[in-house]
Nucleic acid binder design. Sequence first.
DNA 1: CTGTTAGCGCTTTCAG
DNA 2: CTGAAAGCGCTAACAG
Lengths: 342, 342
Amino acid sequence: MSKSTKVTIQDVARLAGVGVGTVSRVLNGHPNVSADAEASVRRAIEESGYRPVAAAQTLRSRRSNIIGFITDEIATSPHAGQIMRGAQETAWKGGKILFLVNTQWDPELERSAVETMIDRQVDGLIYATMFHRAATPPQAIRQIPSVLLDCFVEDASLASVVPNEADGGYQATTYLIEHGHRRIGYINHVEDIPAQRLRLQGYRSALEAHGIPFDAELVVERYSEPKGGYDGMMTLLNLPNPPSAVFCFNDRSAMGAYDAIRQRGLRIPQDIAVIGFDNQELIAANLYPGLTTMQLPHYEMGIWAVEYLLSELDAVGKDEAAAERSPPQVLLKCPLVVRDSV
Amino acid sequence: MSKSTKVTIQDVARLAGVGVGTVSRVLNGHPNVSADAEASVRRAIEESGYRPVAAAQTLRSRRSNIIGFITDEIATSPHAGQIMRGAQETAWKGGKILFLVNTQWDPELERSAVETMIDRQVDGLIYATMFHRAATPPQAIRQIPSVLLDCFVEDASLASVVPNEADGGYQATTYLIEHGHRRIGYINHVEDIPAQRLRLQGYRSALEAHGIPFDAELVVERYSEPKGGYDGMMTLLNLPNPPSAVFCFNDRSAMGAYDAIRQRGLRIPQDIAVIGFDNQELIAANLYPGLTTMQLPHYEMGIWAVEYLLSELDAVGKDEAAAERSPPQVLLKCPLVVRDSV
DNA sequence: CTGTTAGCGCTTTCAG
DNA sequence: CTGAAAGCGCTAACAG
């Protein structure tokens, strides 16, 4: 109500006719507060428009209710806003707030960001990357509860959540098989990254599971962009016995594949079925015909990471043994998004 | 060095053989500290691995060195990661750190976010939107230095930075004119938003400036997505006297226009030149031929917003009169990005 | 130029 | 169940 000076917990206590301790207990949802006392405290808070000063709470309690979110470039990446959304929503529900720093791949900035976070006594830390890969986060991250998102450390010494790439490749290929295709091309990425290796693995497992022999000729490797997709598709089309369907490493390469197919005067999906990966709305939904593709579980990874942190936080002290368990390495499924290209 | 308990400013003072006041002065870059004292303090800090506790600093000084960043959806929007990047880099240089909250268009969450920020004594607040529009931020935002990004309030009572849409439309159209086109179509967006109105205004000014009469027939309004672009382009192509160039409200509609042009068996840019708006990399760079388009100054707006806040912050006290000046309403230019469609 | 001292506003014992 | 009191770690006067 009043606008002049800041309302403190003292003022509230006076107004409610109780001690500051009681106000604090109400604020923090402690038990052992009489209904009467609680009621008058709440009324006093309401009337005075009291808002606790976060810095004071943090200083005394050593909890900031902040979750730090450090990324190489995620906030500037098109599809990964979903991670932020999942993380942020979940944090908010848990009474936490997200603190974002983008490090632009700068290791110096990265170290500095982690330290700044720790200086601010964040309750936990999320270290996220723009694409699924092995990472080497600053050592300091181990001082507090942390989780890796869309990345992992080789020795699995930090909790991690990443997409299940192999399963995604398996599902994509299986979907094609179920639509009657037996000769299925795969335009893979050319660099050795987890997605590259694992999606191929999924592709092979799916063939095997359905009794289709693997034909090395049907797998080409190109940079996963429209040009590479175009080029890879042309190569497949030029085969003596070309495929009737093609699985593209991602939507961008599928975009190029579309061009090649069209240029040959073939129709999608009647002559060639196409399936992508990533579900980049901007591309997949806008291509004609709409691209059927696998979605990366960005939103879900964001949720999982925060929930994990939250559970770690209230496990502190309660279950000492938990700290000893080896950190979870979670894989999240990539759902199939059906449009019109298969 | 030591790992046990937290190193405090007291420890540093003792180690350096000075009082805590001196340490604090060194930390905060005050003048009036002897070179000797400063040197030993710095050494002590180094040796002890001392890091100030942010909450204590904030509590005492009432400055958090945090800039709050509140957005409706910006962090999940593809092109707007650039805003974050600009803001974040600039904040970091100014010794500030960014605190992001995404409100998902929820006014309740929005109010709550602003309050949370104020509770944490952020030094300033950026309120950003996903597309250029009039906005109604929570009242509480006026309690502290704030700036609107990619939006504005009708009465100009809050500082604001937005793209110069009219100039963008002018430049795009002029570029077409300079390439010899006299009959230029415009596929505008259909909703009444600033970009819709202002880009059209720019288009008309450019025609006028070059003595080309405005022909209402050449302006069509469609939803700014591929389908609308396709449809709008078809309408223009069906004109008795069709245009030789077309300005599309954005890259997504240009994507549809491409389809229509191709379907008619026409070539870009030989038969029809196309220019877009937004420079959405994912589309513009991947279309064939590459789409010439206008870029929105996201990165620059991010920088401007933080710089403005920073200047406001150290103007506090120094120049009381400044507070009285009416808040700046800044327009930032949209640069032309030349590819191969004109 | 520098040491000392008083809090910033809150949470958490500690007695009752 | 609750009040009083003791700081959390730091900065900003205030005397020197």
